[in-house]
Design a protein around this nucleic acid. Sequence first.
DNA 1: TTAGAACGCGCG
DNA 2: AAAGCGCGCGTTCTAA
Length: 491
Amino acid sequence: MSLYGGVELPDRPDPENVRRLDLLPIPMVRKIMRYGWRIDPDHFRELSSRLTARMAELRSDITNEIPPEALDRFLEVTDGAEDDDEIAELPDQGFNVESSARIASLLYDTLGLHRTAGVKVKKTKGGDRFSTGKKTLEQLKLQHPVVSLILSYREHSKLESTYARALPRIARFHPKGKDCPECGRFHSTDEYRVHTQILTTRTATGRTASKKPNLGNIPVRSQLGAEIRAGFIASEGHKIVDRDWSQIELRLLAHLSRDPVLLEVYRNDGDVHETTAFGLFGSIESSSNPVARRICAKTCNFSIVYGTTEIGLYEQLCDSFSRVKVPYPDWLTEAGCKAKIDGWFDFYTGAKAYLDAEESKIRRYGIAWTQCGRVRRIPEVKSYHSHIQSAGVRQGNNHGIQGGSADLMRLALGELGDRFDLLREYGIETFPLMTIYDQILTEVPEDDAETVNAATEEIMDNVMVDRSTGMNLCRVPIRSDGKIMSHWVKE
DNA sequence: TTAGAACGCGCG
DNA sequence: AAAGCGCGCGTTCTAA
């Protein structure tokens, strides 16, 4: 029985429910940590040497881009980093590109890019010097060719040190045969697996956190990053079932806010990003740049809800556009972003009303809670500094959505654990690989992949259906996308 | 020598 | 005064 629109929500936290939520996923979490996830060490070793080689090239390209007299001037300057130890910069290798302080010295002291740039260059958090972060460098790209080279070097270096080099070292050996001493299962070949640690009571919002390795930040967005993911593989004769919720946080917002536009989109299985684009730009036929139009809408949907300002949205949009190599549209200014934010709230009036109502509750109680009753204290709203208060309100509103989706994930993991136990009685063995915020990955014998995919879908999509009464407690449908693969990338 | 802050950056 | 939230990790660099 569906009660879309007919359900009144409890307005107070339910501590019993939260305790249950914290315990529910534990059997699944323990399995994830015990079984681990197979990786291909040779893939990473090969990738690592490719990255290292490219880094050396980029290092010399960077030095070559600097005029000789400027380079001499730059290399003479010694800052605290340069003792007479190993860290000292070797003349034949150029300088230490890893050091943000050295990069700042190069870009600003030696080349003076902060003066030639049209925009105001940001300072670091401590305010000691000009920033060399990605967003700043993106803005300086056109000033000097060395900037893009530095960005490229950073990308390579990040992937090499954090993933390509680290993962094979962390992996444990699982010998072939039955009763593997590491995980107890049967392996038809020797394999290497990484065993992440999952922390279930650490984050402020109720999300789980993963470490050693952190499987929540394995690259995917860039071309190079996808090559890291390709090294995560399934056991011999097995497949990976990868299912992720579709826009779970926006659906939760639709549910909580009862925004009429959002409700309508999701109930009709519509395209929410296209709908936002329509609200911000008008019909697609009148658009000169449909690609930019959609990127903008998508970015707005994921940023504005959490209280981004025009400056933040501007930076975010620049990042989105450069990522997909779409030229910046002419309206992309801070003022233009202000207009988009206003337009977004004018279009989604119900969401606006919900966020405002939440804000007043958060300010009054100094507490934010999810629908399931997960509490987060927000003492900041009682601060005498208005910017601290605003940050607190943003955290609180974020908690309702991010924490709410974390609650759903815990519910789903609990249900899925029970379902997997049932499948085992029918001879289907499942090995949970990971849960990443809105995603559940499972390793399963090839022939059972479709079955497990369907079971996972059933659990995830009905996570807000009360199993004892059959009542649907969500005002919009919850949907997910599933993939069956042998590498952690599309086939 | 070691601990940890600062910076930067990967993901949802 | 800062400018969306939530994390973990690698490197540099400083302080003890």
